[in-house]
Computed example of a mutant assay.
Amino acid sequence: MKPVILCYEKCTTCKKALKWVEEMGYDVEIRPIKEKNPTVEELKQWHEKSGLPLKKFFNTSGILYKEMKLKDRIPEMSEEEQYQLLSTDGMLVKRPLLVAEKGVFPGFRQEQWEDILEK
């Protein structure tokens, strides 16, 4: 499976991550998160594979997250409700989101991406 990076073209962190991936010579698929937001099934698989708390998959600095006042609402939601919410709009999902055979990581941290990506 070719690694996939879900990203938003106007996101500066996404641009930085894609530039780094290109410079390192990784062969990845780029998926626009706004146009092809993750499904509930994908989110469940990725969350499980990541080993991270589900809250790490939310774009907490995003406008939509703030407008919806999710900081207060998420703690009261079930995981299923959170998956459903994340699947409604790619802008709610932390990006860039790296999905690879070895793991899944929301956000860009070079060390974690190096561990997950293979040349």
Rank of each mutant, 00 (worst) to 15 (best):
S61P: 00
E76C: 05
Y8N: 05
E23F: 01
L6V: 00
D115S: 12
K36I: 15
E81C: 10
P3N: 03
K102Y: 11
L70I: 05
L43H: 03
W113A: 08
H47N: 12
I116V: 08
E48K: 15
L52C: 07
K66R: 15
G103Y: 09
K44N: 05
L43G: 01
A17Y: 01
E76T: 07
E111N: 11
N37L: 01
D89L: 07
M24D: 00
T12G: 03
E80S: 11
E81S: 12
T60L: 01
W113P: 04
P32C: 00
L97R: 01
E118W: 09
L52T: 11
F105V: 03
E22M: 05
E67R: 15
Y26G: 05
R31Y: 04
L18F: 05
D89A: 02
K71R: 14
S61Y: 07
D72A: 13
K94H: 06
V99Q: 02
N37W: 11
G90T: 03
R95H: 10
P106N: 08
E118T: 14
I33L: 15
E79R: 11
E101H: 11
Y65C: 07
F58I: 09
D27I: 15
A17P: 02
V40Q: 03
M68C: 06
M1D: 00
K102V: 04
P75Y: 08
L43N: 09
K56Q: 15
L52K: 14
T12R: 12
L92M: 04
V21K: 04
L86V: 08
G103H: 10
E118D: 14
S61H: 10
P106V: 02
L64F: 00
L54N: 07
Q112K: 15
Q112P: 00
V4Y: 02
L85V: 14
E23D: 14
P96Y: 06
P106W: 09
Y83T: 11
